[in-house]
Structures are given as C-alpha cells and as structure tokens.
Design a protein around this nucleic acid. Structure first.
Length: 573
RNA sequence: GCCCCCGUAGCUCAGCGGAUAGAGCAGGAGACUUCUAAUCUCCUGGUCGCAGGUUCGAGUCCUGCCGGGGGCACCA
C-alpha cells in the first residue's frame, strides 16, 4: 500500500472515533513534512469547534508511532507527518516484491468499452484524429494493464450520404486506379475530387443520390464497391496506426455501418417506451435537461423526415449494443469536446430507455484541439488540414536529426528505431502531458527538446539508468540486497517511487493522463537529483546494492509509465 | 438568446477549499579528472481576466460581467 493510503486509513479510524463520523483525512504530500493531513479543518467546521484541538486529538488517537517519526500539529490545524526511515525502507521493499510496482488490481475488474480514433472512410486522417487516437490508446493500455477487460471500438465513419458520391467517383476513375490512389494514401485528393464533381455537376449529383439509395437497399454490386472503399481505407488507417504505434487492429473496427440492422429495432424500442415522438415530420427523442435556441426541448433525431437514420440513431444503437451485448460496465468516449452536448444527450436517452443503469456508466473523455504555433487550428501552409501521417513523419525526421547530432555512435537501424521512438514519443508525450480538455500548441522544437517536461527527457532519464546496469554487467532481476536510505536524495526518490500506485489509481478514474506524465517527470527529476549526489557503481557493497534497487525501481516505473502512455523506451539514446 | 470548454510568470503549462501560487523554457550567475553535461545548483520573473459573494481560509466554490474557442433539428 502506498504511504498516503496507509496514513489515510489509520487517520480515518481516528477521525471516526474523535468526530463520530466518517471524515476524509485529506492526506497529501507536503512542503513542511513528508505528508500532511488537512481533514481536521473540515471536521472542525462541521463540529463548530477549534480545528487545532481536533487535530491534536486526532494525532493522539491515531497513535502513529509505528509509522511516523514525528507527528506535529501546525498552523490552523494541519497534521504534519514524517515517515519513519525503517517504514519507508519497508514500503520500498514491498514494491520490489510486488507484482506490478505496488499497484493493486481493481477490486472488481470491469468490462470497459473504449471508443476512440474514428476516422472517416475515404477521407484523410488529419491532425484532428491525433488526440482521440493517442488518448484512447493510453486508456486502453492503462485499463488492460490494471486487469480490466477492454473492448476497443473504432467508430469509423463508413456510412452515410457521402458514399454515393465516393462510389460514383470510384467508378469514374476505374476500380484499379481508385484502389491505387487510396492505397498510397491520397485520400484528400480522392475525396476532394468527388466533392468538386458533386458540387459542380448536376448529373453527377443525381448519380450519387441514386447510388446512396442502392447502397441503403443493399444492392450487391454497390455493396461490393463500398467494401472496396472500406478495405483500402482500412489498409491505409493501419499504416498510420503502425507509424503511430497504437494497438488498434482491424478487428477493432466497429464502424457506423455495423449498426445498420439495429437502427429500426432501436427506434421501435424507443417508440414502445414512449420516448420517441414525432416532431416536424421527424421522429425525435427529447432527453431530459436539454434545450435549444428558443428554450424548446432539444431533440435527438432518431428518424429523419425522409425515413433515413442519422448519427443520433447510430450512436443510440451503439450504446445499446455496448451495454446489452458487450455487457460493458464503463463506456469511454474519447471524442473532441465539441461533441459534448450530443454525447450527454445520448447518455441521458440511454438512461431514460433503461439501457444505461448503475453501476454501468458512460463518460465523455473530452479533448481539445491541436493548434499551430499561431494558436489557431493546425493548418498547412496551403491552409488545408495537416495530414496525420505527415505530422508524424515530420516528428520522426526531426528526431533523426536530433539523435544523430547528439549521439553519432548509434548506427543505421538502431538509430532509425531510436529516432522513431523519440519522435513519436515526443508527439504523444506533448499531447498527454497537458490537461486533455484544453487545446494545445504543437511545437516540434519544444516537444523534441531534451530539457524540461518532454518525452525525450524521460526517455533519456530511463536510458541513463539502463546505462548503469550495462556498466555493472547485471540486470535488475539479479539486483538483491537490503535497501538503505541515508541521503536526502535517496529519501526523495523513495517517496517518488511510492507515489506511482496512487497516481495510477487516480488516472484510472479521471482519464487525465497529464497527471501520470507530470508524476513521471517528478520521478525523473527526483532520480536526477539522486544521480547527481549518490554514486551507484562506485559505492561500497551494501549502499551500492541498495542504490541499484532504487535504480531498478525507477527504470521500471519509467518504462511502465511511459509504456502506459504508449511511449517506447529505448535502452540507449 | 441559451449551453459547454478555456483565461495563472515574457512563452508553454501544473495547481485536489488550505500554510509563502509551483514546474519547464527563455533571461542572469555558477558547476565537467564523473555511472551518458542531452545534466545539476542558485537568481530574476505573478493585480491567478474583472467585480461581487460564501468561508476561519478562494487560483480552486457561487453569481454577474469581459475576452478566446465551440455547440444548439433532419451533415456526421
């Protein structure tokens, strides 16, 4: 158990006794001691009594002598806690012997559906898909590592009116030529050409319209052509995912078309429940708590006036499927924040339909946009959206320059692999190290810097530790020995190591990966302080072994933590 | 008009109702016979958008403004 949990557990019992009610002891790291507990202040307000007095009684009642060397009441009623050295050592040793760096498996492993990435068939993946793909991938890695059952759902845009025009354009080009264009990733050109014809030619527009009807009717030849588009696009998406290094596979594709057969039954069910009502010729669900421009109830249009189905129907079919058939307890939608209201409406409708009931819950893991250096939506010089693959290639190209400049000893293939890990890692870290709700500015120079809170800095910190083991000629599993903590830098590093479990638990709930990133940066910072002050290989036997243990733990947490963010850790940079 | 997100150091960002608001970058001053100096230490730098309110205590919660972005019926 990590120190905060341990102290909180003990203090909670003391609060129970003294206050006569459950109080959160509010234990956290402190500048004034190892930890501080602020719960007495809140408790005093409830009891309308003196917080210092309560804090003093709590401190006495908790009898923390076996855990703390000093327990002091300070200021208006803070309880400052200094952990005993032998306890600190024992906690570190516990982590060494623990299965997963001291992180507990969840009490109740759940089935979690993660909906992320969601590119559109026959359309380029652009910078806008970056965040959903990266954040979703991190969510998947974290939840799987913790022991949850994770079902990845790539809600690909593979259905709808644009496919009439896309298929007709495909026919105009000829299947072979179209497949060629799509396979080389010229999706922008393909889509744009179709769009231009659609806008300029009434004849084409009419063909496209008829083709949509054929598609919806299930015409075999039309479906074959549609499949062709999907197949080529999937191949292309997989190359982008490959370059990005995310775990999405072809089996995770669960596009909008997957719900076609469910749409009519879902709408029928909503009608039977009395939730769907006709309005302006369309069939609508009006989830509770949403209003539009004129204060009128806001609809989810589940069947359009023309009888067709829109994305609200698809999303409702998807949420029903995920809850009923996949039996998910937690639904994560890693989708940009502009979709917030729409998703909340879907969730509310699902609750009203009785599909989404506790303990199952749905969460919008919202994220902001990627901006250019000018603070506006990322655009190429031509003013178009930036292709995701170009963005990634640019990062890797720059990383090659950085890596070869700084370490000329690395050879061809190794250098390429390291540069790729550094370049892609830098992009991911830049994304995951800030609050996902906010927009962030993509700046290659900053993200590829080895100074500051960046991916390369953390990869470097890890590589430095690996270098120690290379020199010592041993590997972490063979590191045995007692842990001895004397230097303040060792003490700081030990506490940093112990914080990992707490941070992981927090991120599991919040899906705020920047707190994991921030933690890893703090750990790396604590390690560098240790590295500067505490020689490892030159130390004498018991201290040397102890320091190797700290090195091994730090390297392991850095590798694991970065791994959970989807970032590779090369042995050397 | 209503709703959502954002506004913290020159720049990029943390900050969970609690002690003097923290990092990194940039700027200034130091430290290499060293386990990777791709580093470390110190310094400089803040009317936390504005104004009220709640509280023993507000960057954090509430209300109203200002500024930026986004959403609000048949595209997805």
């Amino acid at each position: 158990m990590h120190p905060e949990a341990l102290l909180a557990q003990r203090l909670a019992r003391a609060f129970e006794t003294v206050v006569g009610a459950a109080v959160d002891p509010m234990v956290r790291r402190s500048q004034h001691a190892d930890y501080q507990a602020d719960g007495a202040l809140a408790a005093a307000r409830r009891l309308k009594s003196n917080p210092r007095e309560i804090a003093t009684r709590i401190a006495e009642q908790a009898a923390l002598d076996d855990l703390c060397s000093t327990v002091e009441v300070s200021g208006p009623g803070f309880i400052n806690l200094t952990v005993r050295d032998d306890v600190l050592v024992q906690l570190v040793v516990d982590v060494v012997h623990a299965d997963r760096l001291g992180v507990d498996t969840p009490a109740t492993p759940e089935t979690v559906v993660v909906d992320y990435s969601a590119p559109n068939v026959a359309k380029e993946m652009h910078a806008g898909h970056l965040r959903s793909t990266i954040i979703g991938d991190a969510a998947v890695r974290l939840l799987e590592w913790l022991g949850h059952t994770v079902i990845r759902q790539n809600h690909v845009g593979d259905w709808g009116t644009p496919f009439g025009m896309l298929i007709e354009h495909l026919l105009d080009l000829g299947e072979d030529e179209a497949a060629h264009e799509l396979s080389i990733g010229d999706l922008n050109g393909f889509y744009r050409a179709a769009r231009i014809k659609f806008d300029d030619s009434d004849e084409f527009k009419e063909r496209a319209r008829r083709r949509v009807v054929s598609l919806q009717r299930g015409d075999a030849e039309t479906l074959r052509l549609w499949q062709l588009l999907i197949g080529e696009s999937q191949k292309y998406f997989m190359t982008v995912y490959g370059q990005l290094g995310v775990r999405l596979t072809a089996t995770d594709f669960a596009g909008e078309s997957a719900y076609n057969d469910d749409l009519a039954p879902v709408v029928a069910e909503l009608e039977d429940l009395g939730l769907a009502k006709e309005s302006d010729g369309a069939l609508c669900v009006f989830p509770d708590g949403f209003s539009g421009r004129e204060g009128e109830p806001l609809p989810l249009i589940v069947r359009k006036r023309d009888g067709g189905y829109g994305y609200a129907s698809t999303d409702l079919a998807a949420i029903r499927h995920r809850l009923r058939s996949l039996e998910a307890a937690r639904l994560l939608y890693v989708v940009g924040s502009p979709q917030h209201q729409h998703l909340e409406m879907i969730f509310q409708a699902a609750r009203e339909a009785g599909w989404l009931t506790p303990p199952a819950r749905a969460e919008h893991v919202a994220h902001g946009s990627v901006l250019g250096k000018d603070g506006k939506m990322l655009r190429s010089r031509a003013g178009r959206s930036v292709r995701l693959i170009d963005l990634l290639d640019e990062a890797v190209t720059r990383a090659i320059a950085v890596v070869s400049d700084k370490n000329p000893h690395l050879e061809g293939a190794t250098q390429q692999a390291v540069a790729r890990a550094v370049g892609i890692g830098a992009v991911k870290y830049a994304d995951l190290s800030t609050d996902r709700n906010k927009d962030y500015i993509l700046d290659y120079d900053r993200m590829l810097s080895f100074d500051g809170n960046t991916g390369p800095y953390l990869q470097y910190a890890h590589a430095r530790i690996r270098s120690i083991f290379r020199r010592a000629g041993i590997e972490p599993p063979d590191v045995v020995g007692q842990v001895v903590i004397t230097d303040p830098a060792e003490r700081s590093l030990a506490f940093a190591v112990l914080e990992f479990a707490r941070v992981i638990g927090e991120v599991e709930q919040s899906m705020q990966f920047h707190s994991l990133a921030g933690y890893l940066f703090e750990l790396a910072t604590a390690f560098t302080g240790f590295y500067e002050r505490c020689p490892v290989l030159r130390a004498e036997a018991p201290v040397r072994d102890s320091r190797l243990v700290l090195c091994a733990l730090t390297a392991s947490i850095l590798a694991t933590g970065l791994g959970l963010l989807g970032i590779e850790v090369p042995d050397q940079l």
